[in-house]
Every structure is written in C-alpha cells, then in structure tokens.
Write a protein that binds this DNA or RNA. Structure first.
Lengths: 229, 229
DNA sequence: TTTGATAATTAGTTTATGCTAACACCTGGC
DNA sequence: GCCAGGTGTTAGCATAAACTAATTATCAAA
C-alpha cells in the first residue's frame, strides 16, 4: 500500500495539499473545510489528522484545526508542483484545454516520479505559472506566496491585470475563456453594483459584467496609473 | 478506494496483467507464479483470486490455476495498452532510455485516463510496438498474438530478425543496447554450445556470444533464405 | 449563565489488501 | 499403491481509509 513514489499514499498527499490550501493564509485548516473539499465525512478527517499528526506532517490543536509542519509543507508543495507542471505539460504538449487539465493532473500527480516531473519541467523551460496563473513551486520547495487581490475588491476606476483563476471547475473555466478572461489580460474596473452586485470591467474596449461570486475568485494585480501603455 | 479510471483498483489491474502474461500461451496461471511475479505471498493471491472470480474477471479451478474471462481479458489488455503506449511516449518525447521506461509506465498505467492515452497514441502516430518490441493492443482490445521463437531455439546457420526483448530488467536492457541487440536487428546464428551453452550470432559482421538464459528471452522471427538482401 | 447550534471527536463497522501459521491437496518416486 | 515435499487454501490478524451513530467541546446569543 506504500507504493507511491515518495512514500506517501494518494490520500495523504490529497490531505496535505488541501491543508496547505486552507492554511496558506496563516490560519488553521478546520476539519469541516477539509472534509468538504475532499468530499469525505468529518470523522474520516479526524482519523487522518491523527495519522498525519503521528507522522509529524501536521500540528493538531484539538477542536481548533491543523497546520502543516515544515515536513508536511514540503510534501504538500511537492505534490502541488507535480500537479501544476502536469497541467502545463498537458496543455502545451497534448493539446488539453485549460478546463480539462485539472482532473487529469489530479490523478497523475500521485503516480509520476520526480524524474518525470523534472523532464517535463525541462521540456517546458521550467515554467513559473500553471495555465490558470497559479505559481509553481520550485523543485527545492520555494513558492511565490504573493497574495493577490480579488477582482471583487478592486476599486472602481482602477486598472488591473488578471493574474489567476480557480482551476477546479471546468464549466467556469470554459465560460471565462469565452469571455476572454484569461491570466495576463488587462482590465479597467468601470463599475460595481452595491449589495454584492456584479463588477463591470472594460476588456480591450468591450464591457463585461461579472457576478460577485465569480469576481471574488478572480485574482488580480493592480496597475499603477503611470504603468501600462 | 475505487477512484481509478475504469473502476478497477491498481492491485486488480496488476493481477489481471500478470494472469494475462502467464496464461497467454493457453494454459493456467498458477498461484505460485502470480505470487512470484507480483512479489506477494501465495495466500494474498488466493484472496485476490476469490475476489476476481466473484467479479467475473477470471475462472478459478481450485488447485489448478486461473484463466481470464473475456471481461478480464479486455481489462488486462486495456492496462497493457496503457503501459506500452506510455513506454513509447516516454522514450520518444521525454528522452527516456528503453531501460527506464518500464518502471515509470508501471505506475502511470493505473492513473492515466483513456483520453490521455488516446492523445499520446495520436501524437505518436498510433504505434504498434513498444520500445522492447512488444505488440500494443488497439483501443478496441485487439492484439497481435503471434508467438515468436526464442533465439535459443533458432537453428544454427539460420538468419533471424530480433523482434522482442524482455522489458522488466533495466540492467539487462542496458547490456543489450550496448551489444546492439535491439528489436529489428538482423542476426545470423553461427553457432551454439551444447548443454544449454551460449548461442553465437553474427551481427553486421561482428560476433556476439549470448548466454543461454539471456538468449531464451530474446524473441526472433526466422528469415527465409530467399528473403533479405 | 445557561443553552442550543455547530463543529469535532470517539466508537464501532466495512472493504481492500496484505501478512503468517496451520492445514489440505496432489503427484512423483519408491 | 503409499507417502513426502511442494503448492494451494483457510484461518486469523493488521493496516489504511472510508462510513454512521453517538458523544463531547465550543461559542454566541438569549
């Protein structure tokens, strides 16, 4: 049962990835949130938390939540690197669309060797971002943890560059691609309706209306007035 | 635990592949042989045999052995196709040597989707043989089951084409590559020592002495005298 | 401060897969 | 035609990871 490369099971890698995601902005990952993301029942999480804790991969504060230890963080970043390199590779060399790469990478990330990831990364010229704009950890475990602002928070009148979108909902990704909302695109925030209403942006002269919930998942970098052409 | 594509677990796929290999020349696959190839204890095989039998993937004759049903055969060939397409892909597009592809493919074969295999096959021009000369089943489950003769049985004085070598021992594969013994190469059998002694062949004017055990694993196609240039 | 809702945990079961030890079956050599 | 040694199977146990049901902890609001 311990036949995965790196000595961690598929489940363990999935838990660590999820805990990384939930605790990366500093706090604790809760049982509830982990259970929801992994689509398992909360007691399953309690059980795994105990095992991960005994293995020294996480710190557990009962009834509070968990955080990764350094060792756990390293393991999580290793899996995340695999996932994102795979996404770039599939998109670039096997003609996958950006809305299909996630599921395939999700399975492969547990089976590929370090060697294969290194070869893929080299073939790709060591990319720094995946097709959805997420930063790719280096083989040494360094990652760009810059916090990007949400488009839903960008001030009306400001110019921003769309940097990152969520990768886990294929239907959303297809819609975003249709609308031209892909990482790197420049947007001017032209308006926003109150009470969690939509954000209106100008994309190369065309208006786009983006619902609040969707806008909240789009991560942007503000453009200073003197920047840009 | 049933998260593999195709609904079969990794273990089940490995057992079916092994049973296919052991029973492809018509007979039964025995518990002992399956256990040895998969590096598990014989009772583990008995347990799995019971489950596979209940699932309708194999026929079990107690104390005799097992054979694949049509359903089991289909599943085995699907895994074998994945494995071999992966081997060709890794060798061709990711600069793997033919002695390294096996282990990587062995893990990936359980994780890739049909979709990815189809894309790889297309990128490769739908290859019919893997880097070791083994035939690749089609997506529909057809496979070239031509029985090739062993070099150890080729008559002295005959001309043969080396068609297929074993893929599972990296050290052997490195040695064969050094000696120029790769699929497609033409050999003249110039001699053989008695009592399971080595076979001597002429490869493009150079003599090669091949021990009996190794020669027994090399599969060849006899060349009729009028053939070849 | 009590309480009720929500979240977390424990207890106990299930399934897949492995193991060792013990027992059962078969076949070849006498 | 019988028996020994090897092969196959059963019994019983372990572990990882999931589940449901029951219990406990926490927190915020009345």
């Amino acid at each position: 049962m311990r036949q995965e490369p790196g000595g961690l099971t598929r489940s363990v890698e999935d838990y660590l990835k999820t805990i990384y995601r939930l605790s990366s902005q500093g706090g604790f990952a809760t049982t509830r949130d982990i259970a929801e993301i992994l689509a398992v029942a909360p007691p399953s999480v309690s059980g795994m938390v105990k095992r991960l804790s005994e293995a020294g991969l996480i710190e557990h504060v009962p009834y509070r939540g968990v955080q990764l230890t350094n060792q756990g963080r390293r393991a999580a970043l290793r899996t995340i690197r695999r996932h994102r390199i795979l996404e770039v590779y599939l998109a670039r060399f096997l003609a996958y669309d950006w809305d299909n790469v996630h599921d395939e990478a999700e399975r492969l990330e547990h089976a590929v060797s370090d060697e294969l990831i290194a070869r893929m990364a080299r073939a790709l010229g060591d990319p720094s971002y995946d097709p959805h704009g997420a930063p790719i950890p280096t083989a040494e475990g360094d990652i760009d943890e810059t916090e990007l602002a949400s488009l839903a928070d960008a001030p009306v009148g400001s110019d921003v560059v769309l940097r990152q979108v969520n990768d886990d909902d294929a239907a959303v990704l297809r819609y975003l691609a249709e609308q031209g909302l892909t990482p790197g695109v420049r947007l001017r925030v032209t308006g926003r309706q109150p009470f969690n209403g939509p954000t209106i942006v100008d994309l190369a002269g065309v208006a786009r209306i983006i619902g609040h919930e969707l806008a909240a998942t789009l991560r942007c970098e503000p453009l200073l007035p003197e920047e840009g052409r």
